[in-house]
Design a protein around this nucleic acid. Structure first.
Length: 224
DNA sequence: TCATTAATGTGTT
DNA sequence: AACACATTAATGA
């Protein structure tokens, strides 16, 4: 099984100066509708994408057509490939989980940006390091855990990245179907449904269609 | 509001 | 895990 997991919390824009942010703002920006493919393996875009708004999914497709989601990136993240710089996305499909606004950064623009913002370079390293670390951990969890623990691990990760606290719950601000969750933990849609309703019955999570909240107290121990 | 589709739930093998 | 089928919620004409 090809199991990778990239989850990065870091907002790449934080370290940029106002001046550069304005430049980015002027850059060609495109919007991609939900479900549309942004990139696929082998496609040599030679650009870095700055994700201004929305969420994208990185996934692979196995020979039998099964999708495996290897990561989800949210606002302020960066992905893509240019000759001297790779974010590890050259061999994955990327599609939009929701309507997405992004701008494409060409090689020279990126170089310029780095030159103007030494801190940005550090941030980039941090982002990529973080992805590797997450990937490692996730691989481990997938190898050792039963389905329930894998799902819990995933929900906690999603909560860290996309969650907002609401009383005793953390609401996951990301619309995912059970099928999509299944694609992330390498399980079937049905078994994911079963585990989720189990957790729901135990008041560990709350579910609605494409909406999940997790109980803060129940999962406190899982957070770092 | 109704009909269609998508998401989820459940039992059986 | 795979399948078939039931139920329910979302969508949109």
């Amino acid at each position: 099984m090809n199991k990778l997991w990239y989850l990065s919390q870091i907002n790449i824009f934080e370290e940029m100066s106002m001046h550069d942010l304005e430049k980015i703002d002027e850059m060609v920006m495109s919007t991609v509708k939900k479900g549309e493919l942004i990139s696929k393996p082998g496609k040599d875009n030679q650009v870095l994408f700055l994700l201004k708004k929305g969420k994208v999914r990185l996934f692979k497709i196995s020979p039998d057509g099964q999708q495996f989601t290897s990561g989800i990136l949210g606002d302020g993240n960066i992905f893509g490939e240019i000759e001297t710089f790779s974010t590890g996305t050259s061999d994955v499909y990327i599609d939009a989980l929701e309507e997405v606004t992004l701008c494409a950064l060409k090689k020279d623009d990126f170089k310029q940006l780095i030159l103007n913002n030494p801190k940005l370079a550090l941030k980039m390293i941090q982002v990529l390091t973080d992805r590797i670390r997450e990937s490692d951990k996730f691989l481990e969890q997938l190898a050792v855990g039963d389905l329930k623990s894998r799902i819990i691990y995933l929900l906690v990760k999603l909560a860290e990245k996309f969650g907002t606290v609401k009383e005793k719950w953390i609401v996951l601000n990301i619309a995912l179907t059970h099928q999509e969750l299944a694609n992330m933990v390498g399980a079937t849609r049905e078994s994911v449904s079963v585990v989720l309703s189990q957790l729901s019955k135990n008041e560990q999570i709350k579910t609605a269609r494409k909406k999940i909240s997790i109980n803060r107290e129940e999962f406190e121990q899982y957070f770092e």
